[in-house]
Design a protein around this nucleic acid. Sequence first.
DNA 1: TTTTATACTGAAAACTATTTCAGTAAGCTG
DNA 2: CAGCTTACTGAAATAGTTTTCAGTATAAAA
Lengths: 206, 206
Amino acid sequence: MAKELTARRRAILAYLIEHIQELGYPPTIAELGAHFGIASTNGVNDHLVALEKRGYIERSSKARGIRITEKAAVNLYRNHASTVPLVGRVAAGAPILADQNITDHIPVSADIAKRNAYALRVRGDSMIEAGIFDGDLLIVDQERTPRKRDIVVALVEEEEATVKYYFPGSDSVELRPANSSLTPMRYRLDQVQIQGVAISLQRQIK
Amino acid sequence: MAKELTARRRAILAYLIEHIQELGYPPTIAELGAHFGIASTNGVNDHLVALEKRGYIERSSKARGIRITEKAAVNLYRNHASTVPLVGRVAAGAPILADQNITDHIPVSADIAKRNAYALRVRGDSMIEAGIFDGDLLIVDQERTPRKRDIVVALVEEEEATVKYYFPGSDSVELRPANSSLTPMRYRLDQVQIQGVAISLQRQIK
DNA sequence: TTTTATACTGAAAACTATTTCAGTAAGCTG
DNA sequence: CAGCTTACTGAAATAGTTTTCAGTATAAAA
């Protein structure tokens, strides 16, 4: 998936959203054409078909029957979004935020949303003494550089991700659980990939 | 201004909003008619004219050219809010959600927002073994009836609120902390006021 | 180099939606 | 009780929209 949308189609999607926000209803095909200087409704329709095929809009064959999907809203308005994507599994290889990895969107405060963050469901009890329980949602900042004692999401030797305290050494990294029945582990720098620093937590109680 | 809108018109406005929320675009006059069993488009149009005259909608004479105004949107946002109020202190006397008590608004998922919930900053370590730490935000459902072992916000004898496990007895209530260095307390029913059941938790890490 | 995707033109058919015209009937208001 | 509002019916004119058909041109991928 090199480039999901052409510049033209991104522009059309953006105008679609703007129009809905401003007027309260979507534009017609002809109105889109007028705005973009496309004389034939068919020219516009091609773009709409393309946008629909890629899941950015949904159409019903009625007047102004265009709906913006969540995918589009999140993609275009990442900087203004008030949600972060919930990733299903953090594993080696594919980029974390690949579309097929994203299972939901989690509402967060604006300052979190504008960082490059994602959410992750915690599995296991390794951080229980830090108040992080099995099933909790961890909000993770991808861009922040981890510092000593930060809670990080780490990929160890291409395995699936774990959440641990981060203790850097001169030539190695110690990943320390917050659970006295588990032991800290030490790794060479090339064995560990830090996928982000935990900045927030959400829990559904019961 | 006794009654701005008739029941019929309120229903039509509500459906208008619902339709836009669901489908992404307003219904046509004929669709409104079909939904409300009005055979003639003119019958529906009368209502739309009335709604427009009173400032609830704006119309452009194009297909689905209906916009919900802010006046009506107050309605819309009540049902689809995505925040709950953060209350400064929960104390006896004034209602929890009195305006002067509200210090902020916290983003939550839609299903939480539509319950009658509020957020509260936890003070102290009394629930630390339940993974609830000093400074965490607790999202509290006001309407849910507490059951045994629920985490509740309780007002004891007109003091300020505490967060505890709820264990009802036949003629008394036990409020049990999740901290083995603290002791459970037992109160008469008239000494305790339950202000809600914890349904979610949010934490800013560091 | 053939195929595929992008990005359109132009026109007409088919359909959808609003507006207008002409009424009816019940209930409330002064 | 006349006048106004609410709440409609029914039909036709008019306007707005989508869909279909038949192409063109360019660039990128197989």
